[in-house]
Design a protein around this nucleic acid. Structure first.
Length: 959
RNA sequence: GUCGGAGUGGCGGAAUUGGCAUACGCGCUAGACUAAGGAUCUAGUGCCCGAAAGGGCGUGGGGGUUCAAGUCCCCCCUCCGACACCA
């Protein structure tokens, strides 16, 4: 039960919720008034006080950018924030200039959805939510520099989000230099014909002279090179939300992650960012990062680099057509017995003949009836493939489906004709959307070949013991002419050379990573700094025209359609703000009328670079002053990729946010805006707090606080309910808020409990009942140092006894090490032990030795800053302890003269002996042999071997 | 299916990376102080046998390496997370 509730009989100065609340409010005000956590910049308007920090190291600690939810915080949210606060305070106490702040990612779908539910303008709702979150976070005593707290919805902030978009738009990727460069460099190269004036990515090499092209043609070519470009592309159109979603926002069931509405593929002209140009660098630079290995693996998998070859297969039609396929196994080309195109492949129509070739096996063409012509069969199959949902396509053990196209291609290796099929097991989005099928070495191809009775040729000899279908292991090549006998590695190399020599293919690398779809049909996002002229040509706005502010509109809602309606075109809400859309501007060639881009940017945009704005939040001239950026983002002791010193957040951002932010940072690096290659040097994933949730017999979640436990069963009233653990949230009715806990025990208790529950990176269940333990600890610390009746300190100037002093130094040593390693749970356990010892001392002497009291308060201060500040003050100090040096153990106090070590016989502990800490092996063995118990056990036996590990143990091995 | 993470008392969790398994907290048991205890302090608390001394068994399961394994190796089971036929 609640040990802390107000009790009339409690002494007036007992540390309970009432006193804790009073102390906490007082110190939160003090920190705010005294600017305790303002971190000075080396230059600019936030540089006051830098002289005092100039000789110190800097530390940039960062939490993942929170979204200010309308529901407020629950106790799971601040776990990471408390962790970073403890770490930041610890380093501040060690003389670092620590930058720690927190801003708000307030644009995006959630804010807009919330606004829709409440009927308020998104700005009103957002501002209220931010205010509520600020209040909740302040009550936790987080030592943030409030000057640096930015919000993505602030025009002063999104002005720079738009500015970055313009940098990206006005840049192109120079593959020669392997970096982005200003688009003006490209234009001068084009006009001096250093590179052919063709659409980027097209094959046309008959380059016309640049100067002879029309302005429109020139613009078209330049646009095709930009890092931000527009493309008509199949997108995930979600009528139920009225917007297009990124692939990542669509669930594997083919529905929207938010709202769970159906999502349809449809072509639409969209902005895209050329993140694929950075694929190799995003991959390679992972090596420089101090990140959890699983996150790096996820990023590598997401980028999905695979090397292989493109192989050209010519198709036997009247026209000259060839189909390029990507393969990672060019060595198996002799085993390619058919080709498969994705149903959506653009060449399908060109290869399908009017009639089935003679002798077409019945099985190949009869899927849709024996009378169907090739074009009819193909049309039906494409229809079928388009209607299959992702869910059906991923059904386990799904039978391979497909249809013969009626056409044949020539295998360049052995000049044989092989049939071309359409099948939905080949994906248009990967490689070239076409494969050479090698059933002998690929299980999927094997299954398809079985289904359609296609030939199977093994080109790698499996071992004799092999009994499976396709063989993917290594072995000597067979049935492969000039490759025969070679192992896979060698064979690949030979085939690659052969392909190049015969102009039938070339080595290639492909990626799973796609360019980033960057348009959203939403109101509550950053407007693009782009306008269109009458001819439809896009034009970038000038820097001086930023920010492009969101217009006030009467109806900010997106046009939500029937969730199943995929016929209508999306209409963004901004398109209806006609006064805003149509503008007269002078972009350098006289005032003209333009039409604004009416899409907005995705939520990721604002969260891609916020950490840079924390550095220089009010700079009107630049996104960040270069000197300020270099100071906070570089570590002079580490000439590495740079970045934030510690970035803490959940694993759910393993790929998207972390990849997008790295991409933007690298663009800014290439363009000279930042001096560092990477944004986040060290990443740490905090775990989740899970909470028990209860369901009744119907499976409905019931209010967790109303459930009681009898024996091992749980009941709501008299109705039995079942328990499960899950994320805290409204749907599970198991929310515990920091406000509740602070009310009951105080914020310091909440902080301490969250840090004590377990390691920061592990998920663990919330247990309100366990909080009393840490609260009692704080109460005991308080009582050991302060008289509960008078509030006066109970301090003696007498030095502590030897045992207490040694324990104190051991504690200092251990806590220090644990703090550095973010192991707050074990640091707290050590503090419990020291305080338990101190309790004994106080019981005997009725006072705490000052030396122990002082160190205990300082050790505690990063974890529970309010009570520590209060105790510090009552111990007679004038100022905040935020900048007091963190205690350092005296090494001479750490070593003990004598230690107890176990004596084992055959690995089992049989006795313990006390020896000098520095005793030599033979001394220890002698002491062990003379131990009464041991000597009795060894009396009639032969000792085969004696293991002595000085300082640790003795082990006698007997027969 | 593939990739990643994790299985230690009644519960949350410790364990210098091969060296006393269960630190610390919750809970539980007993005692002290009390008019009273849901406060505080003290002691105990992995399981089994035993009055005790002592012994046996114990880190998801099975095997192995080692004087010594929660920790290293092989096989398997369960749970959590990510991805979805990636050629």
């Amino acid at each position: 039960m609640d040990v802390s509730s107000q009790d009339e009989s409690a002494p007036p100065q007992r540390y309970d919720a009432r006193l804790a609340g009073e102390i906490e409010l007082r110190w939160q005000d003090y920190w705010e008034d005294q600017h305790t956590f303002w971190a000075p910049n080396p230059t600019g308007d936030l540089s006051d006080g830098f002289a005092a920090e100039a000789g110190n190291k800097k530390l940039f600690v960062l939490d993942m950018f929170p979204y200010p939810s309308g529901a407020g915080l629950h106790v799971g949210h601040p776990l990471g924030y408390i962790g970073t606060d403890v770490w930041a305070r610890f380093h501040r106490a060690n003389g670092y200039n620590v930058l720690h702040s927190l801003g708000y990612d307030a644009f995006g779908l959630p804010a807009e959805q919330y606004a829709l539910e409440t009927g308020q303008h998104p700005r009103v709702a957002t501002e209220a939510n931010v205010a509520m979150m600020r209040r909740q976070l302040r009550a936790l005593g987080l030592g943030h520099d409030s000057r640096r707290s930015v919000s993505t919805t602030d025009p002063d902030y999104y002005r720079w989000t738009q500015w970055i978009f313009l940098q990206i738009y006005n840049a192109w990727y120079d593959y020669e230099a392997d970096q982005s460069r200003p688009i003006t460099d490209l234009i001068s190269q084009l006009s001096s014909t250093e590179i052919p004036a063709v659409i980027s990515g097209s094959e046309n090499t008959d380059a016309p002279e640049w100067s002879k092209l029309s302005k429109e043609q020139q613009a078209k070519i330049v646009d095709s090179y930009r890092l931000a470009y527009q493309e008509e592309a199949p997108v995930n159109w979600c009528p139920g939300l009225g917007t297009v979603l990124a692939n990542e926002e669509v669930t594997s069931e083919g529905r929207s992650e938010r709202g769970n509405f159906p999502v349809f593929k449809r072509p639409l002209k969209q902005w895209k960012l050329r993140i694929t140009a950075y694929a190799d660098r995003l991959l390679a630079d992972l090596e420089d990062l101090d990140w959890p290995e699983p996150i790096k693996i996820m990023q590598r998998n997401w980028i999905g680099r695979s090397t292989g070859a493109l192989v050209s297969f010519s198709v036997e039609t009247k026209e000259k057509i060839s189909i390029d396929v990507f393969t990672t196994r060019p060595d198996t080309l002799f085993g390619a017995t058919y080709l498969v195109l994705a149903p959506e492949h653009p060449l399908v129509d060109s290869v399908v003949p009017a009639e089935w070739p003679t002798e077409t096996p019945l099985a190949w063409r009869s899927t849709f009836g024996i009378d169907a012509l090739p074009s009819e069969a193909v049309r039906k199959y494409r229809e079928f493939a388009a209607t299959t949902t992702e869910l059906e396509r991923q059904a386990e053990g799904r039978e391979k489906t497909g249809v013969f196209s009626g056409a044949f291609a020539r295998n360049p290796a052995n000049d044989t004709l092989i049939p071309i099929f359409l099948a939905d097991y080949v994906l248009m989005g990967y490689g070239t959307g076409a494969i050479m099928a090698v059933p002998g070495q690929d299980q999927r191809d094997w299954e398809f070949a079985q289904e359609f009775d296609l030939p199977i040729v093994r080109t790698v000899a499996p071992p004799d013991s092999f009994t499976g279908d396709a063989y993917t292991g290594d072995g000597p090549a067979i049935n492969s002419d000039f490759l025969n006998g070679l192992r896979i590695q060698e064979a690949k190399k030979h085939m690659a050379d052969w392909l190049v020599e015969h102009k039938a293919g070339w080595p290639t690398t492909v990626y799973k990573l796609r360019d980033w779809l960057f348009s959203r049909q939403r109101y509550w996002g950053e407007p693009f700094p782009i306008v269109y002229s009458d001819d439809g040509q896009a034009h970038a706005l000038l820097d001086s025209m930023l920010p492009v502010e969101l217009p006030e509109v009467d109806d900010f809602r997106p046009q939500v359609l029937d969730p199943e309606d995929d016929d209508h075109d999306p209409e963004p809400p901004l398109a209806r703000a006609l006064d805003w859309v149509n503008v007269d501007l002078d972009l350098g060639d006289g005032t003209k009328t333009y039409r604004r881009e009416t899409n907005t940017m995705p939520q990721w945009a604002g969260s891609c670079w916020y950490y840079l704005r924390y550095l220089d939040p009010r700079n009107p001239q630049a996104l960040v002053d270069p000197e300020v950026e270099a100071y906070w983002m570089q570590d002079p002791n580490r000439p590495d990729a740079g970045g934030v010193d510690l970035y803490v957040g959940g694993v759910e951002h393993a790929v998207l946010h972390l990849l997008y932010a790295r991409f933007w940072h690298k663009v800014l690096f290439d363009l000279g805006v930042v001096s560092t290659r990477e944004p986040f040097r060290r990443l740490y994933n905090q775990g989740y707090i899970q909470a028990p949730a209860f369901r009744d017999a119907r499976g409905m979640a019931v209010e967790a606080t109303k459930v009681s436990k009898r024996g091992d069963e749980f009941f709501l009233g008299d109705e039995p309910v079942t328990r499960e653990f899950g994320k805290m949230g409204k749907s599970l009715k198991n929310v515990v808020t920091p406000d509740d806990i602070s009310q009951e025990y105080g914020a310091d208790t909440l902080r301490l409990y969250e840090m004590f529950m377990g390691p920061l990176d592990a998920s663990r269940p919330w247990s309100t009942a366990d909080i009393v333990g840490v609260h009692r600890f704080l109460q005991r610390v308080w009582r050991n140092l302060i008289d509960e009746e008078t509030g006066e300190p109970r301090i003696t100037e007498e030095p502590p006894d030897l045992e207490t002093r040694q324990l104190m130094h051991q504690t200092i040593d251990a806590v220090r090490a644990d703090m550095v390693a973010l192991k707050f749970n074990t640091a707290i356990a050590r503090l419990f032990e020291l305080n338990n010892r101190l309790t004994q001392v106080v019981n005997e002497q009725n006072a705490s030795p000052r030396e122990v009291a002082t160190n205990l308060v300082l050790l505690l201060s990063p974890l529970t800053p309010h009570i520590a500040e209060e105790l510090w003050r009552r111990l007679g100090h004038e100022n905040s302890l935020a900048y007091e040096p963190f205690p350092v153990a005296d090494p001479s106090e750490l070593s003990r003269a004598e230690i107890e070590i176990p004596v084992q016989i055959n690995g089992k502990v049989r006795s313990r002996i006390t020896v000098a800490a520095n005793a030599a092996a033979d001394e220890i063995e002698a002491a062990a042999r003379s131990d009464e118990h041991i000597s009795a056990l060894l009396a009639d036996t032969i000792v085969d071997k004696v293991i002595v590990v000085p300082g640790r143990l003795v082990n006698f091995v007997i027969g």
